[in-house]
């Protein structure tokens, strides 16, 4: 019983964290002139900075996937990788960030490539 409650609470935290981050993104779209690409870059930089100053880990511990799935989590992973690399040496400090997110970039490139060979763009429906 306790296990179920804690699972539900955990999922609620995931939903709330992920939802809140997307809500902030939507607020930026609605109230500023920022285009989606700029917002993604902003979130990413924010993720890097928050992790660099040591704040974002707490958000991840609370929100789990809710904090890592949004693009801000991508920034978090980058900074985390770079910081861990810096403990080892100069080259690792440079390459650590990319190493941490390479799975995301590699899979995005690979799937995009495969699917683009198979599928075609279709007109938007409205």
């Amino acid at each position: 019983m306790e296990g179920i409650i804690s699972t539900i609470l955990k999922y609620l935290a995931v939903f709330a964290t992920g939802g809140a981050l997307c809500l902030i993104g939507q607020l930026l779209i609605n109230y500023t002139k920022l285009t989606p690409a700029r917002i993604l870059v902003l979130f990413l930089v924010l993720g890097v900075i928050l992790q660099a100053v040591g704040v974002y880990q707490a958000v991840v511990d609370f929100g789990n996937a809710g904090a890592t799935i949004p693009i801000i989590g991508f920034g978090y992973s980058l900074a985390k990788g770079a910081m861990e690399g810096a403990k080892i040496g100069f080259l690792e400090a440079i390459s650590g960030g990319f190493k941490a997110v390479t799975i995301g970039i590699d899979s995005a490139i690979f799937f995009a490539y495969i699917f683009s060979l198979i599928f075609r763009s279709r007109t938007k429906k409205c």
Binding site: I29, P36, S121, R122, T123, K124, C126
Partner: peptide, 25 residues
């Protein structure tokens, strides 16, 4: 043509963007 103009002026067709209320088709 909607689909050729969209690529010329805006984004790829399959990109998930929201159209703003001032936009035209």
């Amino acid at each position: 043509h909607f689909s050729s103009a969209e690529r010329q002026y805006r984004f790829p067709l399959e990109l998930g963007t929201m159209r703003t209320p001032g936009s035209q088709w």
